[in-house]
Amino acid sequence: MDSLITFWEWLGTNLIVLQILIKIVVIVAPLMLCVAYFTYAERKLIGYMQVRIGPNRVGPKGWLQPIADAVKLMFKEIVIPTKANKVLFLIAPLLTLGPALAAWAVFPFSDGLVLADLNAGLLYILALTSIGVYGVIIAGWASNSKYAFLGAMRSAAQIVAYEIAMGFALVGVLVAAGSLNLGEIVRAQQSDAGIFGWFWLPLFPLFLIYFISGVAETNRAPFDVAEGESEIVAGFHVEYSGMPFAVFFLGEYANMILISALTALLFLGGWLSPLPASWVDGVFLLGDGIHWLFLKTAFAGFFFLWFRATFPRYRYDQIMRLGWKVFIPITIVWILVVGVMVVYRFAWFS
């Protein structure tokens, strides 16, 4: 163990690139596993909600289903439409997955456990999530298909609209925490009130709007008009098959996990324990720790699946109305409220 630690320190001073690469693998490999089992959880949960059993054939209780799916997609033929723009057609899925993975670089998993402790971490995340839309737009255009193009158009308008609401919600968080550093934002939620000291309470409207905008950003039900199976077949990825499709799929689920994890971090106290620190400090598993972050992320992720099983798809004009006429005005008003609370050092901000 000691020699491993010495080796690790030696890497840090001499071969820092290799050390960073190892850290990236340590973050991305479990993330990909989570993505795979998130799809399994989705099929199982929605199955139970609809009084079905869900996948139960591959492996015990269907546990190997995601592996089987991945292998199937890997060996499928990649069909590229004749009139498609080949380069852009193949770049598009990467542009969906890339930002969803790169955003984890500034994500603090626990106090100090972060790959890059950026001062402008929140801005970085916002910038990267805003790039995700390119994958959808380019896929829609490069496929040279009407359905794909319609999906891309819908998605572009929707994502731009909800990004503003999302950005404003994050402005509220930034005002409340007084920092753009994600670790600082979590530490600002630390108090002796436990769960009631987190930002979900003083920023409640922003919390809801952030999460709903996140659902819209990831093109998930009930905001999945970009796919709209019943209207435009599968929207932007109708022409994709095999591995490129799988990459889109991975990107969508990685984005869902990212939004859930960010909700946990920004509004639900990240790695902080929901019990007051004075009660549980040092108690095994009840004190602050990375496991709380995972639990909160899973809790938020569950809502994505629950929404999909519950709500019918929004009509397109109502999506736009909700984004522009409801969410954006509410966020602007609540930023003002947060500003007043911070200036007058109200309860949470004293």
Binding site: A120, A127, V133
Partner: peptide, 26 residues
């Protein structure tokens, strides 16, 4: 100038160019 750099991507790449593409594609 990390603020300017990230805001350049956030505003120009994330919003302005999306609208550009939106129009140009049609």
């Amino acid at each position: 100038a990390e603020f300017l750099a990230i805001v350049l991507i956030l505003v120009y790449v994330g919003a302005v160019m999306v609208l550009f593409l939106f129009v140009v594609m049609m």
